[in-house]
Design a protein around this nucleic acid. Sequence first.
DNA 1: ATAACGATATGATAATTGTCATGTCATGAT
DNA 2: ATCATGACATGACAATTATCATATCGTTAT
Lengths: 228, 228
Amino acid sequence: MDPSCTCELCELKELFFGNLERKYADVICSGKVEKEFSKGETIIREDTHISDFVYLKSGLVKLYKRGDDRTEQIISIAKPFDYVSLLSVFSTNLYNYSVTALEDSVTCNLKMDVIRSIVKENGPLALSLLQKMSRVADAIILDSLRIRKKHLRGRVAFLLIRFATEVYFSNEFELPLSRKEMAEYVGMTTENVIRSLSEFRKDGILKIYGKTIQIVNMKTLKSISEFG
Amino acid sequence: MDPSCTCELCELKELFFGNLERKYADVICSGKVEKEFSKGETIIREDTHISDFVYLKSGLVKLYKRGDDRTEQIISIAKPFDYVSLLSVFSTNLYNYSVTALEDSVTCNLKMDVIRSIVKENGPLALSLLQKMSRVADAIILDSLRIRKKHLRGRVAFLLIRFATEVYFSNEFELPLSRKEMAEYVGMTTENVIRSLSEFRKDGILKIYGKTIQIVNMKTLKSISEFG
DNA sequence: ATAACGATATGATAATTGTCATGTCATGAT
DNA sequence: ATCATGACATGACAATTATCATATCGTTAT
């Protein structure tokens, strides 16, 4: 294997390389390209031709669909090694979703036709991909169902808890989303998301300094997320 | 290939057999079991151990998630050869969703461990499955986004148009869902779904005889579905 | 420095949806 | 035959959310 191909922390390594014979590993190694994106930069634009299989190495991104006017619908927030381009990639020639960096991010890109041809010759790798895709799709669908059961405040609480427990591992963090984006994710209005945050602040559940959120009363927030 | 293995109309044939050498085809053929379900019978119950890969040969089913009390959230309505157990099957040991027959249905069941082991040895088959799964997941997610953008009336209109154009291929059909199930699919209350239907009837857009729906003014219904 | 803009914030009001009560009808159980 | 039950239906009212107006603040462009 090409020694320069050292994605030490990269799940790609497990995903692909654990299942690859040397000859394929070399093909992938030599074909992979790392790309850096600053916060706010678009990584994938929907309705664009799919040429690359894109994997997130570091950073944070949003997966979303553009609307008619200036509205977007956010489908999910992805941490490193979550899917990214994994959906649609095998079913169509055009990306169905857009992806934008919420924080400075690095992706690892591989040519789709290389992936496709290697998948054909490598069952274990294919099985890994099936598992990965299955997990990603499930997570998106289940989250969406969870959110739909809640009211405004519950949705906002859910989102905050997500960031605290699964992205930043801290009760204090800087929101990677604007209020508008939070609204696009939970399917409510920007004003109403702001109102919820203000209420949480007034109730002593949160402290808010611009985009910095400190969860003071996680217990209450959790119960709001569950019921509301 | 076992000549008794004649799923003439079955997509499984294309999916598997087109990609299988004779020895694998025989394994699958001898392992497959057809099961019949009457309308209303449960095909898959969530939180149950996944042993089979289930494919819908004929009929119509709903994919849904059970709630706390007596509520369900319907995720999608599946025609023959749409996914069915395709989601979650590769990622977990327990079904994440339940599946129930909306019309008399026949499934083709294959043992998961057989599928898994064959996938490992057969790349092209794996690629077919990846494409299939990708398409199914995308359809569910995109539909869910489409529905969320609409108001009550638009959601109901959307659902009716779906049945007319993609399931029954006719402007007159018998609803396979109760009003309650329609509500569970579009994410609104049963009463409000009924109200929408009544309004459509009063406006001369539909004729309703119990579960039989006749779409009189498809053009208006479509515009309601698009805006509403 | 100033203007323009977008993000954040809040209030008033309108629109939409949910909840509860009530009633009919068809169906199946006793 | 009668009763209980659940699906369908409608109205009145409450709860929730959206829309519109307005204001502040910080940032960027000129």
